[in-house]
Simulated assay, not measured.
Amino acid sequence: MRLRIDLSYDGSAFHGWATQPGLRTVQGTLEAALAMVLRLPAVAVVCAGRTDTGVHARGQVVHVDLPEDASYDERLLRRLNGVLPADVRVRAVAPAPPGFDARFSALWRRYTYRVADAPALADPLTRGHVLWWPRPLDVEAMAAAAEPLLGLRDFASFCKQREGSTTIRTLQHFSWERVDGLVVATVRADAFCHHMVRSLVGCLLAVGEGRRPATWPAEITAAGVRDPAVAVVPAHGLTLEEVGYPGDADLAGQADLARARRETT
Rank of each mutant, 00 (worst) to 15 (best):
142 M>P: 01
127 R>L: 02
182 L>A: 09
106 A>N: 03
15 H>K: 13
10 D>H: 05
186 T>A: 03
5 I>H: 08
132 W>Y: 14
86 A>V: 15
25 T>Y: 04
131 L>V: 00
123 D>M: 13
41 P>D: 03
170 T>I: 06
76 L>N: 13
170 T>E: 10
264 T>F: 14
133 W>A: 04
171 L>W: 11
3 L>P: 01
146 A>P: 01
234 P>D: 05
78 R>Y: 15
6 D>W: 12
203 C>A: 15
248 D>I: 03
194 H>N: 10
211 R>G: 09
36 M>V: 14
98 P>R: 07
143 A>S: 11
246 P>C: 06
252 A>H: 09
95 P>M: 08
265 T>E: 15
47 C>A: 13
144 A>H: 13
249 A>W: 06
139 V>I: 07
173 H>S: 05
202 G>T: 04
171 L>K: 01
201 V>W: 08
139 V>W: 10
203 C>G: 04
42 A>L: 11
106 A>D: 06
184 V>T: 12
222 A>T: 07
164 G>V: 12
48 A>H: 02
160 K>P: 07
139 V>G: 05
98 P>W: 01
178 R>A: 02
75 R>C: 12
112 T>I: 07
92 A>R: 15
45 V>F: 03
173 H>F: 13
148 P>Q: 06
247 G>D: 11
22 G>Y: 02
38 L>K: 00
239 T>F: 04
133 W>R: 02
131 L>P: 00
104 F>D: 07
22 G>E: 00
144 A>D: 07
173 H>G: 04
239 T>D: 13
14 F>V: 02
184 V>D: 04
203 C>E: 14
116 A>Y: 01
250 D>E: 12
210 G>H: 09
216 W>V: 02
192 F>S: 02
196 M>P: 10
103 R>E: 08
128 G>H: 11
164 G>K: 10
56 H>E: 01
126 T>E: 12
163 E>Y: 09
177 E>W: 07
91 R>F: 14
50 R>G: 02
95 P>Y: 06
103 R>S: 10
48 A>T: 08
185 A>M: 08
98 P>I: 10
53 T>C: 08
127 R>N: 00
14 F>R: 06
8 S>I: 11
99 G>T: 00
7 L>M: 10
43 V>C: 08
242 E>Y: 14
248 D>R: 08
160 K>R: 15
258 A>R: 15
99 G>K: 11
227 D>W: 05
38 L>W: 01
198 R>M: 09
251 L>G: 06
125 L>P: 05
120 A>M: 14
146 A>M: 12
112 T>N: 03
107 L>Q: 00
180 D>C: 12
14 F>N: 01
158 F>P: 09
210 G>I: 02
38 L>N: 03
147 E>C: 00
51 T>H: 02
112 T>H: 12
88 V>Q: 14
94 A>W: 14
251 L>H: 03
